[in-house]
């Protein structure tokens, strides 16, 4: 139990520190790298909870795809990292105020409520028994059956995202000269096929 607690505090401590670094480092590349570090540690937290499938997905999707994409964008944009200190200081009071209000609310909630989930009613037709199945198997067995509607609708959302990005960025440029091979080959009267005898050459 103590080992589990220790790893929990280790992972969440690193997450907190690296999240702070994400927003406080001046170099955007460092920010992205800290973001990746916090994702990795979040994956560690999932492993402690025995949710190994989510942990792996988090690494594959967020670290492998999203964060690397971020990194590419940040490196390609090459923007100047000149942040005006006065501008940041300007927002500190209101930021602290809102943060204090939120923390106070959270504390009030935590003091006032007990997480008692023992007498909660389950779904009318409960999901099948997951005992003895691995994470992946359990998720797979309900994702395409009970939760098919959500799964497919999420797919539609992705389709809309794709359509949207194409609609908003695709431009047909006029006046651009493109190579059309078939047209080149069909030009009449301009191309002669000449049989060149070896050693004699040809007159053009």
């Amino acid at each position: 139990m103590t080992a589990q607690l220790l790893t929990f505090y280790l992972f969440s401590g690193v997450i907190l520190i690296s999240s702070l670094m994400v927003i406080s480092t001046k170099n955007p590349v460092h920010s992205v790298l800290f973001l990746i570090l916090s994702f990795l540690n979040a994956a560690g937290l999932f492993v402690i909870l025995h949710a190994e499938f989510l942990a792996m997905i988090l690494i594959i999707v967020y670290v492998g795809a999203v964060a690397v994409l971020f990194l590419f964008v940040v490196m390609m944009l090459d923007f100047k990292t000149s942040i005006n200190k006065d501008n940041i200081l300007q927002y500190i009071p209101i930021g602290i105020l809102i943060g204090v209000v939120f923390i106070a609310e959270l504390i009030i909630v935590l003091i006032n409520t007990k997480f008692d989930l023992s007498n909660i009613q389950v779904l009318p037709n409960p999901l099948s028994d997951f005992t003895g199945k691995s994470n992946t198997e359990a998720i797979g067995s309900v994702l395409y059956t009970d939760y098919i509607l959500y799964f497919q609708l999420s797919g539609v959302i992705l389709l809309v995202a794709m359509i949207g990005s194409i609609v908003l960025t695709l431009r047909e440029r006029v006046g651009v000269k493109r190579q059309v091979v078939s047209e080149q080959l069909q030009r009449q009267g301009k191309i002669d096929l000449v049989d060149v005898k070896s050693g004699k050459g040809v007159d053009i």
Binding site: L149, L153, V156, I157, I163, G164, L168
Partner: peptide, 23 residues
């Protein structure tokens, strides 16, 4: 709650694109 959120997102994502349609 899940169906509510997914419906809402599908709706709004299309609306964001529509709002910016005139490039």
């Amino acid at each position: 709650l899940l169906a509510m959120f997914i419906g809402l997102e599908l709706q709004s994502l299309s609306l964001y694109v529509l709002a910016a349609l005139n490039r």
